[in-house]
Nucleic acid binder design. Structure first.
Lengths: 154, 154
DNA sequence: GTAATTGCAAAAGGTTTGCAACTCA
DNA sequence: TGAGTTGCAAACCTTTTGCAATTAC
């Protein structure tokens, strides 16, 4: 399923920086690497902590924020809201476009694709006179695990 | 199309407060009224300003926030993200469930309904073992007006 | 009369920014 | 060498909170 492997995307990151006359600093490198190391959604703060926990590795919060913005502008990562008020990011490595289904009990996030829904969205946009740039579809519910365990909690 | 008229929902607000042993204060009344007066999506700050602009009417920011939370808990309004980092609210008066299509250039928000998409969502959730509680579908693009005027702006 | 509410100002939480020191190319 | 980058701390913005005064019921 991978569209591009880690090496290729790393190279593209370098090219992207070069094209914009930006420098590949140690901090950017570490942030990039760490962001692509996880397959989870993460907050800027979480990434900051991960880097701090890694022995000796310290990158300032400001640089984390600045670099995440940079990565998003370059299309290497995308941001979304986790529904609890936090901004979370995910990298695009090996991800085709997908939407999310989120468990309201445990916060688990699964990803899915549905071409029929995609097609209908384009149709809706056209109907309203919009040209569709992107969309966000988030399904929220209770996952199987939580339904079996917690049942009717809170 | 209205599910409930303004009078009816106003009454329900009173009942809701009563049921929770809360008081119908002048401030709550004004906030409620103003929130239902507009059919646009609004930020807490915007509502605060509206009330301030209205001659003599002043409600503190704190009370605006507290009351909006209260109204959302009661199901009288719902909140969402406008995609620019702001929390925006909309009242539910006369609104059936709908999704949003947002213009990335001018921030305009339109609402639509599509039963086919709704049905497919339920199917997706079932496939993944989730029971669907709710969903958010946001289409983002460029509206007809902006496409005609601005064209390829920055 | 009394519990609930308000306004204020301070606090909080997340993100951005100015600036001097530093570093990649 | 010099444009771009970093870290720090202060600034920002939105939202929340503690508390004394006030108000609805």
């Amino acid at each position: 399923m991978a569209i591009m492997d880690q090496t290729a995307i790393r190279k593209r990151f370098g090219e992207y920086l070069h094209a914009r006359s930006l420098k590949l600093t140690g901090q950017r490198d570490r942030i990039f690497e760490r962001a692509f190391e996880t397959h989870e959604h993460f907050t800027p703060e979480a990434l900051f902590d991960w880097l701090r926990e890694a022995e000796g590795t310290t990158v300032s919060r400001a640089t984390v924020y600045r670099t995440l913005t940079l990565l998003e502008e370059g299309g290497f990562i995308v941001s979304m809201n986790n529904g609890l008020g936090d901004v979370v990011y995910e990298h695009i490595l090996g991800h085709e476009h997908h939407d999310h289904i989120i468990c309201l009990k445990c916060g688990r996030i699964d990803e899915f694709q549905n071409t029929e829904i995609e097609a209908l969205q384009i149709e809706v946009a056209r109907t309203w006179g919009y040209s569709l740039v992107r969309h966000t579809l988030r399904l929220e519910g209770v996952c199987g695990t939580c339904r079996l365990s917690g049942a009717e909690t809170g």
